[in-house]
């Protein structure tokens, strides 16, 4: 039985479609990375798993139960670290955790949970005075109460320093070893890559890739970045290139073209350009990294990158595009 199963799920807010015909199955016991840029529909999907919002169409089951009809039962076996939450300013850290334990009818001791997330020394301080990172740790302690069968972590590393992110990964791994399924959303690939068995990539409400990290890595290795310097590029030429099988993204900066595509269609791209009246003056190829695959899957294909230095090394490239996608 899958821990999470979405079947043809669509969510519309007014005339905005946040999630579009999403079908996804997360097997029990896996650490699943749910990737995508901000605004791709990750939080809406998570909100639907928890019955905070209801799908316009489709069915969702969590731990074998209907996510809407049996939401309380779902949440009694699920630990959640929500995104954009706030704590109760006037209650102490310990009181928060006590409330979670009481709510879940769990046998944990508050101090052990607070110890585990590293804020035991702040247990009796009011949570309103906690830093963002400490509040994030407190929410994690609440999520861990009651040994949940499923952990849903929405952008869990936001507000954590690198040390905190590492501790979080260790906790995630320990929970998975205990047998829990972990569903982990992020807009930063590196955080998911290090810990996830499988990932799904969401873009504009649709699932655009799904597989193990290794499968995606293989797919990235099969992709090339082709830089073409070709004056006289027409829109028809660009559309023709986009229409080729095996071409990922196509973008133009200052008359220079960047195409991500399969290795074996590089020549086809050049031929297609010449056929549509462009003069290929120069071209150069690079191997794409997993990061670039992620970016090419999540960026708008029409999006013009700020990548105006064709000689820039791929690492700089990635950093520049990364900023664009996170903004």
């Amino acid at each position: 039985m899958p821990a999470i199963e979405l079947d043809g799920v669509t969510k519309e807010f007014g005339d905005v479609t946040a999630v579009q015909d999403l079908s996804l199955s997360v097997p029990e016991g896996t650490i699943f990375g749910f990737l995508g840029p901000n605004g791709a529909g990750k939080s809406t999907t998570i909100d639907m798993l928890l019955d905070f919002v209801r799908p316009s169409e489709g069915r969702i089951s969590v731990l074998g139960m209907d996510a809407q009809e049996q939401s309380v039962a779902v949440r009694s076996r699920t630990g959640v670290l929500p995104e954009g939450f706030s704590v109760y300013d006037r209650l102490t850290g310990r009181q928060h955790v006590e409330f979670a334990i009481e709510s879940k009818d769990a046998g944990d001791t508050p101090d052990a949970l607070l110890e585990r997330v590293g804020i035991a020394d702040a247990a009796d301080r009011k949570a309103g005075g906690y830093s963002k990172g400490m509040q994030q740790r407190l929410a994690l302690a609440i999520a861990l109460a009651g040994e949940p069968d499923l952990l849903i972590l929405d952008e869990p590393t936001s507000g954590l320093d690198p040390g905190g992110a590492k501790e979080l990964r260790e906790i995630i791994q320990a929970e998975a070893e205990r047998g829990a399924t972990v569903f982990f959303s992020s807009h930063v690939l590196s955080q998911v890559e290090a810990v996830c068995d499988e990932v799904g990539i969401l873009r504009e409400g649709e699932l655009v890739a799904r597989g193990t990290v290794d499968e995606l890595r293989d797919r990235a290795a099969g992709e090339a970045r082709l830089h073409v310097s070709a004056p006289g590029l027409s829109d028809e030429a660009l559309d023709a290139v986009r229409g080729l099988d095996g071409v990922g993204s196509v973008s133009v900066t200052d008359g220079d073209l960047l195409v991500t595509c399969d290795h074996d269609v590089k020549v086809d791209v050049l031929v297609e350009l010449e056929d549509h009246g462009a003069t290929v003056r120069d071209f150069r190829t690079e191997e794409a990294s997993l990061e670039e695959l992620f970016l090419s899957l999540t960026e708008d294909a029409m999006h013009q990158t700020d990548d105006d230095s064709q000689a820039a090394n791929p690492a700089d490239d990635t950093a520049a595009s990364g900023e664009v996608s996170e903004s």
Binding site: F52, T78, P82, S86, S103, I142, A143
Partner: peptide
């Protein structure tokens, strides 16, 4: 509006 409702409803309360 503060977001504490998310914390509250992430726990098993109807």
């Amino acid at each position: 509006s503060s977001g504490s409702l998310k914390l509250l409803l992430s726990l098993p309360h109807s």
